[in-house]
Simulated assay, not measured.
Amino acid sequence: MQRYLLWGSLSVVVNIAMFYLFNSIFGVEYQISNLLAWVFSVQTAFWVDKLLVFKHASDHPFRDMGKFYGTRVFTYILEAVILYVGISLLSFHPTITKVIGHGLAVIGNYFFSKWFIFNNKAHTKA
């Protein structure tokens, strides 16, 4: 978990920075900014988690990537709902709402990665 927090902070920085860049600097609508930030950060997170956090050896990296993206879709939807409620319904600041939503998503992502994607149980020969 310590490696996840240390290295996972890189994908969090990518996510929040990309959201801020698209939404606040370029004026892109917040849900589209969130989707773009998600794509950049999930790709960063996959390689960081695979190589540095869970040190997962596999003969099927693209299958692992598919599972990784699949679980991230669930937490992306959770985050999108939080953004909608926080920004559209409650008129909270977009970047602050993003930080809160992404924080909850990170917690879910850790458990999905640990239990379903990088668990190192007979993944090398399938």
Rank of each mutant, 00 (worst) to 15 (best):
Q2Y: 14
L5A: 05
L5K: 06
L6A: 12
L6E: 11
W7A: 07
L10E: 07
S11E: 07
V12Y: 11
V14A: 11
V14I: 04
I16V: 15
A17L: 09
F19P: 00
F19E: 08
F22R: 01
I25H: 13
I25Y: 14
F26V: 06
F26Y: 13
G27Q: 13
V28I: 13
I32Q: 08
S33V: 02
N34T: 03
N34C: 05
N34W: 02
A37M: 05
V39C: 11
V42Y: 06
V42R: 01
F46C: 04
F46K: 11
W47M: 07
K50A: 09
L52T: 00
V53K: 14
V53Q: 11
F54I: 05
H56P: 00
H56A: 11
A57N: 14
S58G: 10
S58L: 03
D59M: 12
P61D: 01
R63C: 01
M65V: 00
M65F: 12
G66V: 00
G66E: 03
G70V: 01
T71D: 08
T71H: 12
T71F: 15
R72M: 12
V73K: 06
V73D: 05
V73A: 10
Y76M: 15
Y76V: 12
L78I: 09
E79D: 13
A80M: 09
I82P: 10
L83D: 04
Y84A: 06
G86I: 00
S88D: 07
S88F: 08
L90S: 03
S91P: 03
S91D: 09
T95V: 07
I96L: 14
T97A: 14
I100R: 01
H102G: 12
G103A: 04
L104A: 14
A105T: 11
V106R: 09
N109A: 13
Y110S: 01
Y110G: 00
F116W: 15
F116N: 04
I117G: 10
F118I: 08
N119V: 04
N120V: 11
K121R: 13
K121V: 08
H123P: 06
H123V: 02
T124K: 15
A126K: 09
A126H: 11
A126M: 13
